[in-house]
Amino acid sequence: MSTPHSTAVTLVLVYLCWARGQVCRGEEVSRDEEVSSGDTGKRQVLEALKTGILSSLGMDQPPVVPQKASQEELWEMQALYQEKLSHFGLNSSQNNGRSTVLLPRTVLKLSPGPRTNLRRRPLHWHRAEFTKIPSIQEELSLIRAQLYMSRQVLKRAAPKVKVHIPGSKSTKRAMWTDITANGNTTQSLVLDVSAEVQKWIREGVGPFVVDVRHKGADYSFNISLKLTHDRKISRTTRSVKEEEDCDERDLCCRQSMTVSFKDIGWTDWVVAPLEYTMFFCQGSCPHNYKPASMHTQVKSRLAQISKAGISRPCCVPAAYEPMVLMHYDSHGKLKLTPFEDLIVSKCHCA
């Protein structure tokens, strides 16, 4: 018997076949037809994915979160999140495609400095502290480190913030940008802190400290640190990847697409991962190519010689990898939901 989660994943895969024009009907879809779908096809895939995830969580619409979890609750859930990934034999870098997301251990409000001009809007300082986790090693090859921040829209708050990292020589400035999804508007910003994080990984013994300054109305914000890095690929992993890489022959293979929860407007209720790599199976299935079973070989042969309209085998998933979602539920509570058969790891013809 299938679980609600696997049922939802099946729904996603059915939609994927429909959106990519890959319905198993014994017809080949040309490369020109596939390319012509373009952005429309990608939007259809993302809509199918959103529908499948919401359905698996028992929701019709993304939840409205009236109040975010405290920093202590976020830290505790982050620890459970890492444990859950370890339980599935994953780490956060595998789960969202070579990235590790850190949530701050604490976010403290600092005492403002002296106010020299009564006409100036008051200054507010907040300090976020990030702690290393076991998956961050000294030999980690960092490609990029980004600081993600988001807040509810505030009319009286200044549109700019300043970010200072103690020990660095410069102060970074950024503007909030609006993100509208499902009728709700939030604001977010992303800052590159690669040099500072690399120094912290190499030399730091304490937490990674980020000081945020803003003017006008005081407000709370969500903040996270995303580390993108190289991942050592074992010989076994490399051979599987080479087998799954698509080529110009248009045969059954595994294709990929990056899904960003920010781009689809879900960062107000999905905490981690920030993004992940979604795979799907696509391509033709000529006779005896990646057959799933002896039955597939017989079916393929019958499709060649029969005039009764027997359909040929279709390119479908052969194996999956799990993904763990940290999110708010319909009651505004932070929780973890594993999807054990969401990410396709291998394709075959069946």
Score class of each variant (00 low, 15 high):
R151D: 00
Q61E: 14
M278W: 12
S92R: 12
L274P: 01
W266I: 08
Q82H: 13
Q22M: 11
P4R: 05
L140Q: 10
V107Q: 10
Q67H: 11
P273R: 07
V64T: 15
W75L: 14
T171Q: 08
K307I: 04
K335S: 13
K68Y: 14
Q152D: 14
T171N: 04
W200A: 05
I53E: 01
L11Q: 12
Q94H: 13
A318T: 02
C349K: 06
L110Q: 10
K162R: 12
C347R: 05
E203P: 00
R25I: 13
E340H: 12
T106G: 01
L302G: 01
E129R: 12
M1D: 04
Y148E: 13
N117K: 12
H5M: 12
C24N: 10
D192W: 03
E138W: 09
H126W: 10
P112H: 08
L110R: 08
I223P: 03
E47I: 02
L140C: 09
V298P: 02
G206Q: 14
Q94W: 02
A19R: 05
D218W: 01
R156E: 05
R231W: 02
Y148W: 15
L13G: 01
C285M: 11
C281V: 09
V210W: 02
N91P: 00
E73V: 11
G41R: 04
H348M: 09
H164A: 15
T177C: 00
